Simulated scan of single mutants.
Amino acid sequence: MASRSDSLIRLAYVLTNDQHAAEDLLQTALMKTAGHWRRIRGNPEAYVRKVMYHEQVGRWRSPRWGRERVVHAPPEQLVEDRTREVEDRLTLRQALRALPVRKRAVLVLRYYEDLPESEVAKIMGCSVGTVRSQTHQAVARLRELVGEHLILEA
Results as ranks from 00 to 15, higher is better:
Val131Ser: 14
Asp114Trp: 06
Ala138Met: 00
Arg49Tyr: 04
Val106Asp: 11
Gln77Ala: 15
His72Phe: 15
Pro63Ala: 03
Val70Arg: 08
Val51Ile: 08
Leu150Ala: 02
Tyr111Val: 08
Ala34Pro: 07
Met124Gln: 15
Gly66Met: 00
Val86Ala: 08
Thr16Val: 03
Val146Tyr: 02
Lys32Pro: 02
Val70Leu: 10
His54Pro: 00
Tyr53Lys: 02
Asp88Tyr: 01
Leu115Lys: 15
Asp18Gln: 07
Leu145Lys: 00
Ala46Val: 05
Val14Phe: 04
Ala46Asp: 08
Tyr47Ser: 01
Arg61Tyr: 05
Thr91Gly: 05
Glu23Met: 07
Ser7Arg: 10
Arg4Met: 13
Arg110Glu: 05
Val131Ala: 14
Ala12His: 01
Arg102His: 08
Tyr47Glu: 11
Lys32Arg: 10
Val86Trp: 13
Asp18His: 15
Lys122Ala: 15
Gln27His: 12
Leu99Arg: 05
Thr91Asp: 01
Gly42Val: 02
Glu76Pro: 01
Leu145Tyr: 03
Leu11Lys: 02
Ile123Ser: 12
Glu76Ser: 10
Val51Ser: 05
Leu78His: 11
Val71Ser: 11
Ile40Ala: 08
Gly58Gln: 02
Arg141Met: 14
Ala154His: 13
Glu153Gly: 02
Pro63Arg: 10
Val139Trp: 01
Asp6Thr: 09
Ala21Ile: 01
Gly66Ile: 02
Ser62Ile: 05
Leu15Thr: 01
Gly35Ala: 12
Asn17Met: 15
Arg69His: 12
Ser133Lys: 08
Gly42Thr: 11
Tyr53Phe: 13
Thr135Ser: 14
Glu23Phe: 06
Leu152Glu: 14
Asn43Glu: 03
Tyr13Arg: 12
Arg102Tyr: 06
Leu145Asn: 03
Val48Asp: 00
